[in-house]
């Protein structure tokens, strides 16, 4: 797919000498949903703020649909909508007026029919004449999204869109992101929630200390790095794993009542049948067996620990 955003060797060092972005390069394809994961201070917000023009880069290049984000900033920025993390809105303004302001600011002619569509999709049309201060937190977040969509952008940045929102609204947000993708909008979101990335992203990027540690297709990532764990609960606790089971690299739970076996689901043989036989031969009595698929969260945690 053609990249709609190309970032080349992007770095940002603040006057305080803090390096927020350290030689980052990435390409984002048109129409995809990219989730950027990372702990606080990883550089996620700085990265999207730099692409959007809010932060000046120290070095490097950014191209948006082929336009240099610095030299051709007008063309580049017209393609981008940004939803910030905080609910930053003029409380006294009405919903429709704040959308008109955003649309005008981005150089688009007045088009209340389009704004009506946006507000209807976000279930805000009934609130169009309400001052923003009278809306709930969830509605205010949707107003921010509506503002970001008011100038018909091809790319939408969502900075922690579901931070601090309830489960229901989070799922609504995911549905909205999916509908945006269907309409051809490229979505880049930053999040703390691994389940969010797992639920809606096509690709996942993991950032830490201003670097992208990993950038991969979500399914490939889960397949490549995903492991399954077999938990074998024993009838009686054991203090030491029998030597005959050493080759399986088992680990013992803290309570010493269960054995844990990691295996690769994509391998020809998982070794489970042989393991269960050998456990039986070692004189251990099984009580229960369960499996658990490793998630993006495990991958994310492992990756950050590896890089420490």
């Amino acid at each position: 797919m053609t990249p709609i955003i190309v970032v080349k060797n992007l770095s940002k060092t603040y006057s305080s000498a803090l390096t927020a972005l350290d030689n980052i390069s990435l390409e984002i394809s048109a129409g995809e949903i990219l989730a950027l994961l990372g702990p606080n201070g990883a550089g996620k917000t700085t990265l999207i703020s730099t692409i959007c023009g809010i932060v000046n880069p120290s070095s490097g290049k950014i191209f948006v649909d082929g336009f240099d984000a610095i030299k051709d900033y007008r063309k580049a920025r017209q393609l981008i909508g940004l939803v910030p993390q905080e609910l930053v809105l003029d409380s006294f303004e009405t919903v429709l007026n704040t959308l008109r302001f955003s649309r005008g600011l981005f150089g688009k002619p007045k088009n209340d029919n389009y704004l009506r569509d946006v507000l209807e999709k976000l279930s805000l049309w009934d609130k169009r004449d309400s001052p923003i201060m009278t809306l709930s937190g969830g509605m205010k977040r949707r107003v921010l999204i509506a503002k970001a969509l008011s100038h018909e952008p091809k790319i939408l940045f969502l900075d922690e869109p579901t931070a601090g929102v309830d489960v229901e609204l989070r799922k609504d947000m995911w549905a909205l992101v999916n509908s945006l993708r269907k309409s051809g909008v490229t979505v880049i979101l930053t999040t703390h929630y691994i389940e969010e990335a797992e639920a809606i992203a096509d690709r996942v990027g993991v950032m830490n200390k201003g670097k992208i540690l990993l950038l991969s297709d979500k399914k490939t990532l889960l397949k490549k790095m995903g492991k399954k764990e077999l938990k074998i609960e024993l009838h009686d606790p054991v203090l030491v794993i029998p030597a005959s089971l050493d080759s399986y690299k088992l680990s013992l739970t803290e309570q010493k009542t269960a054995l844990l076996y990691s295996y690769d689901t994509s391998a020809n043989r998982t070794g489970i049948t042989k393991l269960l036989n050998d456990i039986s031969k070692a004189g251990l009595i099984l009580k229960d067996v369960s499996t658990r698929q490793s998630s993006l969260e495990d991958i994310f945690t492992n990756l950050l620990e590896e890089k420490k």
Binding site: G53, R77, I80, P84, E86, D90, S102, F106
Partner: peptide, 17 residues
């Protein structure tokens, strides 16, 4: 100052203006 204080300045800075 108000957009700076409230935080809505981000919209001005990210606009093609």
């Amino acid at each position: 100052y108000l957009p700076k204080f409230v935080g809505t300045i981000f919209e001005i800075l990210s606009a093609p203006i």
